[in-house]
């Protein structure tokens, strides 16, 4: 099948502010006990791009993301954050340059949205330091762009799934970093909320030039929003490239073990998969019925 041509120039996206921000990984391997969850994965993200990591369940996406943020110590390889080996940077300094939102985080009982989001300012504080104008501005800005200002005094328990996820994203934004990593930010959300969250991330990327790297389940959404895609299989990098380079029947078959056709997303002109499944095929059923006759 001929792939539709998609004009993608990842570097075109870049903005002045984050031109300098960069995150790269060389030959990252992470082991849990004797099990190698990630095995020699490379990455190079810079210039205000959106990146997506896709792959089957348990292939090591979350582990790789956690290694990028230094939440887990790699067995081998190095992560370079803005030109420095991340393993050698002070913890709080890392936290002012890179934010990470893990998969389905849990808020403490009774905490308000404002309280939650204001925790994002932790890396800028030491014991005894005061809540500054800058802190207040950062939190208010984060609430505003995530459309959570009206919910600031609400308890997080009382929010809908989409609002809750936006509150957590606001926390990550209040951290005011040039690089934001998110682990499945749209899982468990209704379709409308999924698009809302991804649009929000795309806006932030376009306006502030924030580098965004996200693990995402939905291949079509990855293709629609990402400048580059990393497809992982069994802890290794299967394919890395632009959506049109990665979203091909061959790659999808290798990575997800699934046969697909690729068409062009009429909305975004990005590649889009149409999965084959035994029962979804109307024509096949007709053929079977014809054969019976």
């Amino acid at each position: 099948m001929k792939l539709p041509e998609i004009p993608t120039d990842p570097l075109n996206h870049g903005q002045q502010q984050s031109q300098s921000a960069s995150l790269s990984a060389q030959k990252i391997s992470v082991a849990y006990g004797t099990h190698l969850a990630v095995n020699g994965v490379d990455l190079d993200a810079h210039g205000g791009q959106i990146g997506a990591i896709i792959g089957a369940n348990g292939c090591g996406k979350s582990t790789f993301l956690r290694a990028l943020a230094r939440l887990v110590k790699p067995q081998g390889g190095t992560v370079i954050l803005n030109g420095h080996d991340i393993a050698k940077l002070p913890t709080k300094r890392v936290a002012t340059q890179l934010g990470i939102l893990p998969q389905s985080p849990i808020a403490p009982d009774g905490i308000t949205v404002f309280d939650l989001v204001s925790r994002g300012r932790y890396p800028y504080h030491r014991f005894g330091s005061h809540w500054s104008r800058q802190d207040q501005d950062a939190v208010e800005h984060a609430l505003e762009v995530t459309h959570m200002s009206d919910f600031a005094d609400r308890s997080v328990d009382q929010l809908s799934g989409g609002q809750r996820q936006r509150a957590w994203i606001a926390l990550t934004l209040a951290q005011d970093t040039d690089i934001v990593l998110l682990d499945e930010p749209t899982t468990y959300l209704d379709v409308a909320y999924q698009l809302e969250v991804l649009d929000l991330l795309a806006d932030l990327n376009a306006i502030d030039g924030i580098i965004i790297i996200m693990v995402i389940h939905d291949i079509n959404l990855a293709a629609r929003y990402a400048d580059w895609i990393l497809a992982m299989k069994d802890g290794t990098c299967d394919t890395f490239g632009t959506p049109s380079e990665v979203i091909t029947p061959d790659v999808i078959r290798r990575v997800f073990g699934m046969d697909v056709r690729i068409i062009q997303d009429p909305e975004s002109k990005t590649p889009m998969i149409i999965a084959d499944s035994r029962h979804a095929l109307g024509p096949k059923r007709e053929i079977l019925e014809k054969e019976k006759l």
Partner: peptide, 12 residues
């Protein structure tokens, strides 16, 4: 209380 990963990501 935000969870280990969130806390670590914020520099704890």
């Amino acid at each position: 209380r935000l969870g280990d990963d969130v806390a670590a990501g914020l520099g704890v």
